[in-house]
């Protein structure tokens, strides 16, 4: 694969941005003080970080079919992430089952 290709450079930069968002999400998960701010850090890492990485992989995908499949995976992750974050937040807000560990 040719490294000097501008397409590859764009892909590498996008991948780096995605990795940065994942690292920021992990740091936020470790350092933020309470549950809801941690949830906020998590959803950013999930949606934006994976979005950038999938965008980069779509650029270097071998054929259009794979690119569409990658986009569909991202769509599924976005829906699942939003629903999951909502469920966790609701459960934490009601304090439902938190005390019975």
């Amino acid at each position: 694969m040719n490294v000097a290709d501008p397409l590859n450079w764009t892909a590498i930069v996008l991948m780096g941005t995605g990795a940065f968002f994942f690292v920021a999400g992990s740091v936020g998960l470790l350092r933020l003080p309470d549950r809801f701010s941690r949830l906020h850090a998590l959803t950013k890492a999930d949606n934006v970080g994976l979005g950038f990485i999938i965008l980069a992989l779509m650029l270097i995908a071998p054929d259009p079919f794979h690119a569409v499949k990658l986009a569909l995976i991202w769509l599924l992750v976005v829906f699942a992430g939003a629903t999951g974050a909502h469920l966790i937040a609701k459960r934490a807000l009601r304090n439902d089952g938190e005390d019975s560990r």
Binding site: G25, L29, R38, L42, D46, G49, G81
Partner: peptide, 8 residues
């Protein structure tokens, strides 16, 4: 939450 981040 951490497990979900690991999944992504």
């Amino acid at each position: 939450m951490a497990a979900q981040l690991m999944g992504t």
